[in-house]
Design a protein around this nucleic acid. Structure first.
Length: 541
RNA sequence: GGCCCCGUCGUCUAGCGGCCCAGGACGCCGCCCUCUCAAGGCGGUAGCGCCGGUUCAAAUCCGGUCGGGGCUACCA
């Protein structure tokens, strides 16, 4: 009866064992895997995991593979796979093995149906699994009753109605064409404890699993897909993964997974369960949610343009606190130690990331910044990309302001999307001249602003000495009734039109369109005399 | 509810019985520098959840308690 449920030519487990032999790797080599599910855009936690998987595998001369866990076809999202590739590539976390690369594929679970069915049939033959015809309505009703009776929910004991069904009952349902799932016949006994080692938390114990979990989902088609639990056991065994690093949410199912490995005759892998990345919310914290929190998505970081190294450095520091104390380059080279991973979920701190990112960008040359910026802009801000392409030299000159030849480079770029607001004014294509009455000019009377600007424009010289250049503002400020220092203005505000600060601010706003900018003299030099005059003159009309 | 994990400044953490009336980083506050901003320099703020126990000695070990998080699906 069991054999009739499966294709006659379905291979036996031995076939797969031979097809996917143990790997020939050095002693102690670790094989790790990441199993992203294309049910939405990639979570930043997935990059965190990928980073750890890759580091641990490569440090041990092992292998790191990516397996697409697409067994939930209903929730699959278009374009997710493309986004995965983009993310791995951005962070240089390409796996050693993935679809099309590696001898243990296919690496999409949806294409491994025959493999799962072989092993499920084997379990059925050995009575370690059975057919279950319970409908979702029946299961919901069961849960309700269990809740009322205050007993643990699940398919077990007297609730497991199909566990000991007679062949006749099963045959009758089959004859009716009733949909069914395959359940694992758990050998667990309620109350019994199990112990196991966990690479991050040490020796752990828990109540054994006694729930008959579904291992093969129902289907109209002959090809059935497994649940996560069954796929985990089968795939990680056949792909010869020996260290399963996964999120903490899986910790409670370890006893069940161990039962599955045992029943299948597989040697279980080592497990490491990483703490979940959290987000601060008004009442406390919760796990970063892909659906609710924009910063949970990898796309958020790509779009904003955080340099990959900055993000990786931040993530590495979260994994091993000691790495956060090292300089970026050293930290990216240093090994991640599983034993040093924290057991508590860290809150992701956007401000800290920005600080790290600004520090990192400050170490780059103007050429490096421009190169990265152009790649980012090409995808996320095409208009800016066009301007940068057309004005390559201007862009370099703009970036060089207070960055080249100074002891402390500017840190006004935390991410590539900051460029527009911080440096956009250097480009006439991106700049709109400021006219009289603009609120950015502050409270100075229009007449004064106009007269001051006119005077400035008339005598303006493109001097190469900073002090001499500033003297132009200084002298004119005095002439128009501004106090020579902020201090003096403060002492007798009624005697002055404003201070030198206010006078400079007029020129600053005219040149940059902002009340905050890099050093004015440098800006003016990059802009050139004609452009300075054009912008300042705009205030005289 | 049951089961599991976790618990040091606001945040990330160092600490693994005396070196700690707890160190660093980010944030925040103040001062300096200053034509604004971003920096930079100097200083400051703030924490071992609580209660017992072990010990000459506990942030560190044990128990309890409280709190946070996770799981409890034919989702992963």
């Amino acid at each position: 009866m069991i054999d009739q449920l499966f294709p006659a030519d379905l291979p036996s487990p031995e076939h797969w064992e031979q097809r996917y032999p143990p790997r020939e790797l050095p002693q102690g080599a670790l094989v790790t895997r990441l199993g992203p599910s294309p049910t939405g855009y990639m979570h930043i936690g997935t990059i965190y995991m990928a980073m750890i998987d890759l580091d641990v595998a490569h440090r041990s001369d092992g292998r790191y593979l990516v397996r697409i866990e697409d067994t939930d076809q209903a929730r699959e999202v278009q374009g997710a796979l493309e986004q995965f590739d983009r993310a791995f590539s951005y962070f240089s976390l390409e796996p050693d093995e993935r679809e099309g690369h590696g001898g243990y594929g296919p690496y999409h679970q949806s294409e491994r149906s025959a493999i799962y069915m072989s092993y499920a049939r084997e379990l059925l033959r050995q009575s370690k699994a059975y057919l279950c015809f319970a409908t979702s309505a029946e299961l919901a009703e069961m849960r309700k009753l269990q809740q009322q009776a205050k007993v643990p929910p699940g398919y077990y004991g007297r609730w497991a109605t199909w566990r000991d069904a007679t062949p006749a009952q099963v045959e009758a349902k089959l004859a009716e064409g009733t949909p069914y799932v395959v359940r694992f016949r758990s050998p667990g006994i309620p109350g019994r404890r199990v112990e196991f080692d966990e690479a991050i938390r040490g020796r752990l114990s828990a109540e054994d699993n006694y729930n008959d979990v579904v291992i093969l989902k129902s289907s109209q088609l002959p090809d059935r897909l497994p649940t996560y639990h069954f796929a985990h056991a089968v795939d990680d065994h056949l792909m010869r993964v020996n260290l399963v690093i996964r999120g903490e949410e899986w910790l409670p199912s370890v006893p069940m997974h161990l039962q599955l490995f045992e029943a299948l005759g597989f040697e279980p892998p080592r497990y490491a369960h990483t703490a979940l990345l959290m987000k601060q919310i008004p009442g406390g914290k919760r796990k970063l949610s892909k659906r609710k929190d924009p910063e949970a998505s990898v796309d958020f970081y790509l779009q904003a343009g955080y340099p990959a190294k900055a993000v990786l450095y931040y993530l590495r520091g979260l994994a091993n606190g000691s790495l956060a104390e090292m300089p970026l380059d050293a930290a990216l080279e240093a090994p991640i130690k599983l034993s040093e991973l924290g057991g508590a979920g860290p809150l992701i701190d956007q401000v800290k990331l920005e600080d790290i990112s600004a520090d990192h960008i400050a170490t780059l040359s103007t050429q490096q910044i421009l190169a990265a910026l152009r790649i980012w802009a090409r995808r996320y801000d095409p208009e800016l990309a066009d301007v940068l392409d057309a004005q390559h030299d201007l862009a370099l000159a703009a970036l060089a302001v207070e960055r080249v030849g100074v002891p402390n480079p500017r840190k006004d770029l935390r991410k590539w999307s900051d460029f527009r607001s911080a440096y956009g004014f250097f480009f006439s294509e991106l700049f709109t001249p400021v006219t009289l009455g603009d609120e950015r000019l502050g409270t100075l009377p229009d007449d004064l602003v106009r007269a001051f600007a006119a005077d400035f424009a008339e005598g303006y010289q493109d001097l190469s000495d900073k002090d001499e250049w500033f003297a132009q503002i200084r002298d004119l400020a005095a002439k128009h009734g501004f106090a020579p220092t902020a201090k003096q203005f403060k002492q007798a505000p009624q005697e002055y039109a404003g201070s030198i600060t206010h006078a400079s601010q007029v020129i600053r706003v005219a040149l940059t369109g902002s009340r905050q900018s890099p050093d004015l003299f440098s800006v003016a030099r990059v802009l050139g005399k004609d452009e300075v005059l054009r912008r300042v003159s705009s205030l005289t009309r």
